[in-house]
Design a binder for these strands. Sequence first.
DNA 1: CATGAATGAGTGTTCATTCAT
DNA 2: TATGAATGAACACTCATTCAT
Lengths: 217, 217, 217, 217
Amino acid sequence: MEVEERKPIRIFSEKELSIIQAAEKLFAQLGFDGTSVRDIAREAQVNVAMISYYFNSKLGLLEAVVSARIEVGRLEIEDLLHNKTIDPLSKIDRLIDGLVDRMMKHKSFHQISMRSQLNAENGQLNPMLAAQKKYNLKLITQLIQDGQKLGVFSKQVDIPLLVMTIIGTIYQAATGSPYFTLAVKASTSEQILQGRLLKKLKIHLKKVARATLTYEV
Amino acid sequence: MEVEERKPIRIFSEKELSIIQAAEKLFAQLGFDGTSVRDIAREAQVNVAMISYYFNSKLGLLEAVVSARIEVGRLEIEDLLHNKTIDPLSKIDRLIDGLVDRMMKHKSFHQISMRSQLNAENGQLNPMLAAQKKYNLKLITQLIQDGQKLGVFSKQVDIPLLVMTIIGTIYQAATGSPYFTLAVKASTSEQILQGRLLKKLKIHLKKVARATLTYEV
Amino acid sequence: MEVEERKPIRIFSEKELSIIQAAEKLFAQLGFDGTSVRDIAREAQVNVAMISYYFNSKLGLLEAVVSARIEVGRLEIEDLLHNKTIDPLSKIDRLIDGLVDRMMKHKSFHQISMRSQLNAENGQLNPMLAAQKKYNLKLITQLIQDGQKLGVFSKQVDIPLLVMTIIGTIYQAATGSPYFTLAVKASTSEQILQGRLLKKLKIHLKKVARATLTYEV
Amino acid sequence: MEVEERKPIRIFSEKELSIIQAAEKLFAQLGFDGTSVRDIAREAQVNVAMISYYFNSKLGLLEAVVSARIEVGRLEIEDLLHNKTIDPLSKIDRLIDGLVDRMMKHKSFHQISMRSQLNAENGQLNPMLAAQKKYNLKLITQLIQDGQKLGVFSKQVDIPLLVMTIIGTIYQAATGSPYFTLAVKASTSEQILQGRLLKKLKIHLKKVARATLTYEV
DNA sequence: CATGAATGAGTGTTCATTCAT
DNA sequence: TATGAATGAACACTCATTCAT
């Protein structure tokens, strides 16, 4: 596997971090255009001018938000790939568990990420995200090919599309698709709902993955 | 099956339609907040004030955009369900073909639709869309249950989640997910790319659906 | 003489005119950068947004200010040139009287005009002003050459430099050069001062012009 | 001759000098308002806060810029007056040569100086400059009166106005008046242009001065 | 029905300056 | 003496909407 170039991780001050967190929350909630820098400043309890001061522009802040989150995700997937103690099928399971957990926990970020796929505005953002997705795909491809070599997985499977299916499904769940809320009927508190749905989602995805990976035409 | 309440379909004048079309295009391209009413007015070649005049507000226009598209989609799915001449598996295939074709053709609308799931702002929009999705789910559930009764489909399948998987996958494709573009390597012109990917996507989805529907734990 | 191309004169509404007047005054007083659009809006008693609405930008307003004034000056000089009833020397006298009167009356504009010679910012402004000055020079050259043909004026005179001397002197006076205020000692009220100085200035300039035009090396 | 009060010459540190030089350059280029203290700090390669620290305010810096340049000019004119070895006419010639050379070399300063005549803002600046000009005028008056006593110069001449004419003409040239650039037709490189124009300008001014000083009504 | 004019609130950003160290 | 961080006010400009006609 080729060595990926990584920008040196920028260290953020406490104030910068509070701005980033506020921005991540609001961007996801209201969209990039729907959020004003004053909203962010208020939420982060800093002066408006600090945003330009630290991040040059609103767009620069968006990029900081995204790149900050990317670093975290990258490591977890790499760890899984290099883990020598578990079999391919379990790796798929763990991959799905990890993706679901991370995407549901950081909905904010993934909503930003998905939104940005369509808005031309985001200068450096899209290349950054696309590179990250390409890199993830490489890791997962490796993982599945290991299973194929062991005869556990079908060789027919279209890996990029399967990954897209998994990501797309979780994204729907994360953005509150009505289909998702309809998936569990009986549920009172939001907390419980969230827990049951998460479990259902994981099981469903594993089943889809398993079925697709092992299903021979 | 319960009777769905439907708002009487509003008849739009030619000018209103041109505004709606312009808005659908621009909202999808630039987002709701990213689009100004002046942009829309210019694109539709009408006076700015007409938008407030016809749709009361920018938000009212968004609702008009969405409801206009919903009417079209509703009928197609109903037709499929009531079709007595084809078997459940073929219905699934046709359903997927239809969804892919419609979502790719009217990306604009579906992007608006997905975006709106998170933005609190959209007054009547979410209930409208949620109702539509609930209705669609009902039809598809019916369709799958027919297959289950005939012993063609597994009874374990979680229908809302499967639908969510299908929708989620197509949405990723429609919004230009890097995973999707990575799914077909060799391709020159954008046109060809689009065609090949569409075919791959449909095959993939049918395989996923088939595997999931017939896969016994 | 070649025919000059002229942009069709834009007709300004009453509100536009009040903005232009306010801007001319403030730009001259505080400079372009030193004047805020809010200042102008307040002075003209209009809403801030109207300035963008009418003139697109602050710079557009500046251009409107300048081009509005240019039109007025152009005609007066043309009239003088085409006047067949007075001799060259009297034409010089009248030219100077006119220049002094106009530059002192519309100090604002000429200060803007001079300022703009150095600031790169002014997109269309400089070409516009340079063209106007070139055109003026053409007329005056014609006028002096008439006098040279009649043997009234020296043929040694450097016309562009003489014009520059005249303009430069008036400009100093108009911008309140200390040399000018020192030129008349006894004077009480500002009104009288202004009157006496004007007269002195005109006499001085005519003497300079006459001496220079008739002085043989 | 009255004794002029002079502020004790402030000694500037190396850092202060680099700020002053940067400021002189930028103020002349972009105007006072058009220049930000950050621009100056960057140009001078010092911290922004240093400017307030050293000069109290941006305005204080402007005053420092101006007073620094004034000191230099003052001495040269004094030297000329006290020179006992050359005749009045040659002194006029040398005066003009000196003024042209200094004003063209330090355009920056003179642009600032002229600009400041109109801007009310400049607290101590105008009195300072006016005092300097008054002092200069006194020296030149002395010089011309010497010539008048010797019968070389006309007694009709209005000295302040003549000085104003000379200064005004040079200022036009220094600020790039179109009249000036039109004064020399054939010229290729900017360097040559500059040289030829300077020579022309000096000759013109001397002729104007001579003609005016010796011309009897 | 339709529109150009007008509005006031809000946008992202930059400003000169001050503060804590 | 020197500085990076921080501030609040101001900047030019755009917004969705309303008004008078």
